[in-house]
Design a protein around this nucleic acid. Sequence first.
DNA 1: ATGTCATGTTATCAGTGTAAACATGGTTTG
DNA 2: CAAACCATGTTTACACTGATAACATGACAT
Lengths: 199, 199
Amino acid sequence: MTSDDNTVNIKPRDGRYHHGDLRSALIEEGLAQLDVKPPDAVSLREIARNVGVSATAVYRHFPDKAALLNALCGVGGERLAEAFREAMSGADDQRGAFKAMGRAYVKFALRNPSVFRLMMTQSRPKGDREKDPCATDEPFGMLSDTLNALMPPDASKTARKIKRLQAWSMVHGLAMLMLDGQVPPDEALVDQVIVASFL
Amino acid sequence: MTSDDNTVNIKPRDGRYHHGDLRSALIEEGLAQLDVKPPDAVSLREIARNVGVSATAVYRHFPDKAALLNALCGVGGERLAEAFREAMSGADDQRGAFKAMGRAYVKFALRNPSVFRLMMTQSRPKGDREKDPCATDEPFGMLSDTLNALMPPDASKTARKIKRLQAWSMVHGLAMLMLDGQVPPDEALVDQVIVASFL
DNA sequence: ATGTCATGTTATCAGTGTAAACATGGTTTG
DNA sequence: CAAACCATGTTTACACTGATAACATGACAT
């Protein structure tokens, strides 16, 4: 017991030596940190500290810091997919649905900046080993499907690809520029840009 | 002389105690680092080490790590402006010039990934104190001017703003998606997307 | 009761940014 | 010319990080 802890040193000595569900607790605390600081500023040690557990306990559940971040990334993907579903449900036609998804994309970025960054920009240098589905697959699939349904049936494969890339680039770029302070993060402005968009 | 250096320990003992032009040397070395690693992986200590100087010597020329990064950011801006000039010079009309600048934007990002990141995405958490012109002003002004010349003279101010934002968002998003590995960094693909673009 | 094993802990290491105190040597002034 | 000044670099030290290795605990099965 070196007691060099800066905090109150609350050991979970309330009966059980084992935490119960540390893994979930770590993820939850990780998400909480992402609400208030950029991804590169989240620290394993602080997460552990706030959960009330030793610094190295994390390594029993995640081999790496990148692994923890990937987990957070995963729940981010689910949330984005959920946001897309909600956006689609409120639209009349396919075209409206697509634009609604575009708005939802940027809105999601503005409201969960760090999670968005974590998902989209490789904020974890070596996290993408082989697999790493990163859960962006689901929301991206939804976008792709909606756009395909929207285009003329005789459109070529590459034409679809280009169109998809244009749309994605635009919302992604808008989100990034706003997150990075190059453009004021105004949701009304987002609407204007998307409404005036092609398609 | 602790000699705990891992390197060959080359002190600049070739006559002058003072380095001569440390500031420039630090910037140059910093840019060299940015060529091979992402911005958040550049380390003051390693820069100092490679320049052959003590770790804290940096603080005689830059108050902060962020300050050094901002300096690098500055030369990045000059380079981008230069790339824009070159792109414009090879075009016949205004419309061609604008699209050429779009291509140049993405190309610049692909060829100087870390510098681009440093300039565009706030990779320095607290770097943007008050001033921080960040030198992106010049290239952005060039883009804006070209687009303005391109639009019908009776276009409203907000119409211009929206159009500018659309264009910028698209190239920026495309660049980011490619840098982050979400889209293959294919320059031919860039051309397709931009050519097929609105405008 | 006795092992086994997942889970958590302590000790330790290398690396980082940064501040404070000190050293050096060119430049300016008496 | 000597002495003070001051920009520049050095040493030392601190707090923080991610990560590894060795050890402790306690739940659960045989």
